[in-house]
Amino acid sequence: MSRVSVITILPVAAAAVLAIGLYAMKYEVARLETRANELQRSLIAQTETLGVLQSEWSYLNRPDRLRELALRHLTLVPVAVQQIGALDEIPLRAAPAVADNRGPLSRIKPANLPSAQMAQVGEREAP
């Protein structure tokens, strides 16, 4: 008798659990579908907005408009070719003359801060 009831109750219980599960699942799916549609709509709307903004940006960046704005608000002018130079055209400070045959690294002591070295170089060049 107890065996029969187990056999009966178990499927019934399983069916009940399944039914509840299915019900919950169905509503979850419906909810997710609504959400997916919402996102889809939002995506379309955002894409359209993005397109409008990109076109607007391109429109506002018309070269003639930019030039007019620059003339009105800025004191800048286009770069002239005379203002463009190569890196090796910049003169470098002359290398300090090394009096003895010790290498340049041998002079460096912990006390020799870069500023001290600069002063030293200046002194040596002065005469």
Partner: peptide, 16 residues
């Protein structure tokens, strides 16, 4: 589809 220049500046676009 959009048409852009070599630096990505929009030259033609479709708007809703």
């Amino acid at each position: 589809g959009d048409i852009v220049d070599r630096n990505g500046v929009v030259l033609a676009s479709s708007l809703a």
